[in-house]
């Protein structure tokens, strides 16, 4: 997974956000596919950002294009959802935290209604305590796979509970922080509930991969986390 943060502190301004660096990281760590969105799309303007993402993925098929839409813009949002889905985007990433809107707002739920008519998945932040429960209640009934990003040691307990309740709720792994939690997650919610993410190029790839690599889970479970679940539920159209 690739993302950035909107309020860039000094250290993230130093990050090499280039496409070339992303491809280099993929080569270095043996990444077959990377779900990728445009920083321009998140921070500035999503239509041209989505076009940029699509062009990059066309040039480099290892990149899985991820569209992003900011519902605050209102005009053109539903049309952009249709345009991207029709074009072939299969993942939509939303940023309620960094763009300062709420997942219960009607503009976002209308977007979800549109997306529910397509074979797509939705990614959005795990957010503060309580948000994942709302994600489950508000979004899982749409039927598409929902991936909660960046759950940390302070919020991953909620991830486990929501994943155990909703078959189409998944948790991305990059910020889970403890191996025992990964192991407990697999025990409680099943190995199909976790989807590996690295947060490259913002974060060190080996921090995220090391967490999954040292977990005491079966190799079959590790394989699901490191790519099988993403391949099936995000890219392959399999029903959770």
């Amino acid at each position: 997974m690739v993302r950035s943060i909107a309020q860039l502190p000094e250290t993230t301004q130093d990050v090499d956000w280039s496409l070339e660096n992303l491809l280099r990281i993929m080569d270095k760590y043996g990444v077959d596919r990377a779900c990728t969105y445009s920083l321009r799309g998140k921070l500035y303007e999503f239509i041209s950002g989505n076009d940029e993402t699509w062009a990059a993925a066309e040039e480099h098929p290892r990149l899985v294009p991820v569209a992003t839409i900011d519902p605050q813009r209102h005009f053109g949002c539903l049309e952009e959802a249709e345009r991207c889905a029709d074009r072939g985007f299969r993942i939509f990433r939303f940023f309620p935290d960094e763009q300062a809107w709420d997942i219960g707002c009607l503009p976002f739920l209308r977007l979800c209604e549109v997306l529910a008519g397509w074979p797509v998945a939705v990614m959005l932040p795990a957010g503060p305590w309580g948000q994942q429960t709302r994600i489950g209640e508000l979004l899982c009934s749409f039927g598409f796979p929902v991936v909660a990003m960046d759950a940390t040691f302070t919020t991953v307990a909620e991830s486990i509970a929501v994943a155990a309740r909703y078959d189409n709720f998944f948790c991305e792994t990059s910020m889970i922080h403890t191996v025992e939690t990964v192991e407990g997650f697999v025990t409680e919610a099943g190995p199909d509930s976790l989807i590996f993410g690295s947060n490259s190029p913002e974060s060190y790839f080996p921090s995220a991969s090391g967490l999954v690599n040292v977990a005491r889970v079966t190799e079959a479970a590790r394989s699901r986390i490191m790519g099988g679940n993403a391949a099936d539920y995000l890219l392959g159209g399999a029903s959770p």
Partner: peptide, 16 residues
């Protein structure tokens, strides 16, 4: 540790 996983921190140095 064990609030955070040592392999997680080690990954920063491996990445460097």
């Amino acid at each position: 540790a064990d609030l955070l996983e040592p392999a997680f921190t080690r990954g920063m140095f491996e990445g460097a």
